[in-house]
């Protein structure tokens, strides 16, 4: 039987990879992709904990996280299309319209 901590460390590693990519990549699509990686890390953690606690609630929560991720990525991509129409770039550090 694999200990629970292995799964938790794996999920932490995946989450940090997503977080680093979210912070350092310039492309907005890449940032959304790394957001998905982070949500997947959370899902791994929830399902592993649910399995080891023999409790179904973690899996229910993971189900809702998946629905939330789908909704979030739809909104994010729509916003990206709207932003791309105003400024012909997908680079986050060039969106400076709110700068005074």
């Amino acid at each position: 039987m694999i200990p629970l901590s292995w799964y938790l460390v794996l999920a932490a590693g995946l989450f940090i990879i997503g977080m680093v990519a979210f912070l350092i990549r310039r492309n907005v699509i890449m940032m959304l992709i790394s957001l998905e990686l982070m949500l997947n890390a959370v899902n791994i953690m929830l399902i592993a904990a649910s399995h080891y606690l023999q409790d179904i609630r973690g899996q229910i929560l993971a189900f809702f996280v998946m629905a939330g991720a789908a909704a979030g990525v739809a909104i994010g991509l729509a916003l990206l299309i709207a932003a791309f129409r105003n400024k012909e770039t997908a680079h986050m550090d060039e969106y400076t319209l709110l700068k005074g």
């Binding site: 629970l4 460390v9 932490a12 912070l23 080891y52 023999q54 409790d55």
Partner: peptide, 28 residues
């Protein structure tokens, strides 16, 4: 940014790598 994230990862791994739980629920 990478350095700060790696620092966070280290803290998380050190705090998580000994976690173990007792099964409590009824969903065996």
């Amino acid at each position: 940014r990478v350095a700060v994230c790696l620092l966070i990862l280290t803290v998380v791994v050190v705090s998580l790598h000994k976690v173990s739980v007792q099964p409590t629920g009824g969903y065996t």
